[in-house]
Design a protein around this nucleic acid. Sequence first.
DNA 1: GATTTAACTGAACATTCGTTCATATCAAAG
DNA 2: CTTTGATATGAACGAATGTTCAGTTAAATC
Lengths: 195, 195
Amino acid sequence: MARTQGSHSGITGPRVRDAALRLFARHGYAAVSMRQIAGEVGVQAGALYNYTPDKQSLLFELMRGHMEELLAAWDGLPQEGDAMAILEAFTRFHIRFHSERPDAVFIAYMELRNLTPGNFATVEALRRDYENRLEAILSRGVAQGVFRVPEPKIAAMAVIAMLTGVNTWFRTGGRLSLPEVEAIYWDMVRRAVSA
Amino acid sequence: MARTQGSHSGITGPRVRDAALRLFARHGYAAVSMRQIAGEVGVQAGALYNYTPDKQSLLFELMRGHMEELLAAWDGLPQEGDAMAILEAFTRFHIRFHSERPDAVFIAYMELRNLTPGNFATVEALRRDYENRLEAILSRGVAQGVFRVPEPKIAAMAVIAMLTGVNTWFRTGGRLSLPEVEAIYWDMVRRAVSA
DNA sequence: GATTTAACTGAACATTCGTTCATATCAAAG
DNA sequence: CTTTGATATGAACGAATGTTCAGTTAAATC
């Protein structure tokens, strides 16, 4: 029995990626089998290979796609005002973007070691790109006298770590709304780097 | 052929834990086989079961041991001065303690999902204990008028995330010494929460 | 209605997995 | 020297792994 109902082209592909994303985030790449992913999609394991050449590519494409979305989303925002205004925009953007895709964020941070060396280098370069965006903002602010940080690179790492940490506890529908969380974190970021 | 040279009691056990720690950190719990661990120790896989009832216990004991060491080390420090002084001590302690055991820290953060529910609850409770230590410091500082943070619990999570992030980039022998890193981070933490 | 083709099945492949256990070896105790 | 007990081997277990592929089905095309 094959193709049990209707044409699935263009619909099974996304479903495979969705299932892989959720399962990888929940149990980890190495702990998830192709048969589990297939089971979530409602298909046999062999059918997955119509949508990915192998398991490694499935992971890599999820991570690469996430990082490229992240960069494109930030680069797509208008950057108006001084360094302070842009840093606030970055802070709020980072929290919002990451809180909307907890599974992809989780995978992008936790599964780096399960990438082949070549794939790792690609994803790592994208991550560095993103970190450099923030570092540039901080450096510009220092030059303008708006910020005072001794090491912009380190401050960038510190801010990103702090903001990404929101994902470990924030749940939509909890006590605090996302705008409230943004305000609290922006207050801390601003005070931490202000001149 | 068995016990090929001398008595190994009391020495193989730690070597098993050391190998498991390094391998779990490098490749992830699910991606490491008992045979790999045994190979690192220079022993056959079956021999590991003289030192752990199973693979899961090996992971759990590593994580529990790390968290209990962390709590004991902090609780063992003298807490003198006002909330500001204690927060500085906490900041420097956290950076130093974590930078000294990158593998254990990595595992404690990344392998939570590979614990059985019961083991997870135990480790999670220890983590919450640690977070509560910092939250108490912040709350005390707010009461004393030294700090100004709207949500001590969230501020505690933010500070811990920021400080633990040091492990992602810091390497001994790099451009910055550990005391320099401590100073940079303490400066950011202080400004982020000061009244 | 016949033909084509994308989509999927189900079985099979060689490996590897965690774990168990009968057996062998060596250090220490008597 | 003999006995004992801890320590390790090496083979074996059933189960699960990623991946391949010939064959089957049903939708789309003519």
